[in-house]
């Protein structure tokens, strides 16, 4: 269902949930975000990739928590500052991004989304589906799929 609606939205406009990590404005398609959670207790998982922050319990389902700060080479999160969890689903499993805050849902015309500039660092380029120019700042549209691949999956 979500796929269909995305196809429909692509031709006209895109609804994005906006969020901030280290003051950078990011957006993901609204249908990708299943749930937005406040403070959660995270269980750390040893021996895994450093971007996996742990696991949390979402009403009986286990959600793998991903901290993309490490991937984007941003300074580590200050554990004392509260954070927000954006839960997404990928191949039947739940994942959650840790972000600093979540903002409004923006509706933008699909045509206004431009490719990421070539001088953007490769680790940023990998996860961005495009850039949208807002009046005051730039919004990077996240492509969540690369976030959920950890070198174990082929696609």
């Amino acid at each position: 269902m979500s796929k269909q609606s995305s196809a429909v939205l692509h031709v006209s406009e895109e609804q994005l949930v906006t969020m901030r990590i280290h003051n950078q404005l990011l957006g993901i398609p609204v249908w990708e975000a299943r749930e937005i959670l406040r403070e959660q207790k995270i269980t750390k998982i040893p021996l895994v990739a450093s971007e996996i922050a742990g696991a949390l319990n979402l009403r009986g389902r286990i959600v793998t928590v991903i901290d993309i700060r490490h991937r984007l080479q941003l300074p580590p999160r200050d554990p004392s500052v509260p954070c927000i969890f954006v839960v997404m689903e990928h191949k039947g499993e739940l994942y959650s991004l840790i972000v600093d805050s979540v903002g409004d849902v923006l509706t933008i015309p699909s045509t206004s989304i431009q490719n990421a500039p070539p001088n953007l660092a490769p680790n940023w380029r990998d996860i961005s589906a495009g850039v949208h120019r807002l009046e005051k700042e730039l919004l990077i549209i996240l492509d969540p799929r690369p976030l959920f691949t950890f070198g174990v999956e082929s696609d």
């Binding site: 207790k41 021996l47 990739a49």
Partner: peptide
């Protein structure tokens, strides 16, 4: 366990305990 953790053979699975915490 999730795909992201499958590569670690030390974990046979995970679960949620009575107190709501996830445990490996």
């Amino acid at each position: 366990v999730s795909q992201a953790i499958k590569s670690v053979p030390l974990f046979a699975g995970n679960t949620i305990l009575g107190d709501g915490n996830v445990i490996m």
